[in-house]
C-alpha cells in the first residue's frame, strides 16, 4: 500500500522527491520521506484527494539527529472497511534557524502538537496561528530536547542543581562509569587468559 502511495506522491509532486523507507528486518514502521518545501501540498493531497484520505493526524514528533532535525507526522484514516496509518517524515536541514510550514489549518490537531515541537526543539512553524510555548514556562531559555541543550543553573532565583543536595561523588561515578566498565572488562579478560 505504501509503495503505491509513494509512487503516486512522486508522480503528482515531482519536487517532493518522495522516498519510501522500509525498516530493516521489520523492526519499526515504514515511512515516506518528502522534501520540506512541498509539505503543504502533499498534506492536502493526503487528506482530500488520495485514495486513502488520511483525515486524522495522530501525533507530530520532532527528532534531533545532531546534523539536522526530522519532523514525523503520524497519519491515519479510520475507514470502517480497512484502516491505514503511516508516518510522513520531513527533514529540516537548517539547524540554526529551523523553519517548516505549518499544517495547523489542514489538520486542527496539529495546532498543539506543533507548539510542543516548537517548545522542545525550537522548530518554527510558518503560518501557525498561535506559536507559543506549551509546556515550559514562557520565560524559559533554550529548547530542552535539543541534543546540545545545557540545563540552566538558575531559574527565577531557584537553583536547579543545588550543590548541597547533589552527591558529587556519584555524579562523577556516572560520568566515568563507561571508562570504568571498560577497565573492568579488560581486567576480567586478563584473568581469563
Amino acid at each position: 500500500m505504501l509503495d503505491e502511495l509513494c509512487q503516486e506522491i512522486k508522480l503528482k509532486f515531482p519536487a517532493s522527491q518522495a522516498v519510501l523507507h522500509n525498516p530493516p528486518e521489520n523492526v519499526g514502521s515504514p515511512s515516506i520521506e518528502i522534501e520540506a518545501k512541498s509539505l503543504r501540498e502533499v498534506a492536502l493531497y493526503l487528506r482530500d484527494d488520495c485514495k486513502y484520505k488520511f483525515s486524522v493526524l495522530q501525533v507530530i514528533s520532532g527528532v534531533d539527529y545532531l546534523e539536522y532535525f526530522e519532523v514525523c507526522y503520524m497519519l491515519a484514516n479510520f475507514d470502517l472497511a480497512r484502516s491505514y496509518e503511516f508516518i510522513l517524515k520531513v527533514k529540516v536541514s537548517d539547524r540554526v534557524n529551523p523553519v517548516l510550514d505549518s499544517v495547523a489549518d489542514i489538520w486542527p490537531a496539529a495546532n498543539w502538537q506543533e507548539r510542543e515541537c516548537f517548545d522542545m526543539l525550537g522548530i518554527e512553524f510558518k503560518g501557525h496561528p498561535d506559536l507559543r510555548r506549551i509546556l515550559c514556562p514562557e520565560d524559559w531559555q533554550g529548547f530542552p530536547l535539543r541534543k546540545d541543550y545545557v540545563a540552566a543553573k538558575y531559574y527565577n532565583g531557584m537553583q536547579v542543581y543545588p550543590d548541597h543536595k547533589m552527591n558529587l561523588e556519584e555524579r562523577s561515578f556516572i560520568i566515568n562509569s563507561k571508562s570504568k566498565q571498560e577497565e573492568l572488562q579488560k581486567q576480567s579478560l586478563a584473568k581469563g587468559l
Binding site: P144, M158, Q159, V160, K165
Partner: peptide
C-alpha cells in the same frame, strides 16, 4: 522530598520543595 527520579537529569524539576 528531593527531586525523585528527576534528581540527576531533571532540568525542569525543583530538587525538593524545601527549596521554596
Amino acid at each position: 522530598n528531593k527531586g525523585g527520579p528527576y534528581w540527576q537529569h531533571g532540568y525542569h524539576v525543583l530538587k525538593g520543595v524545601d527549596e521554596v
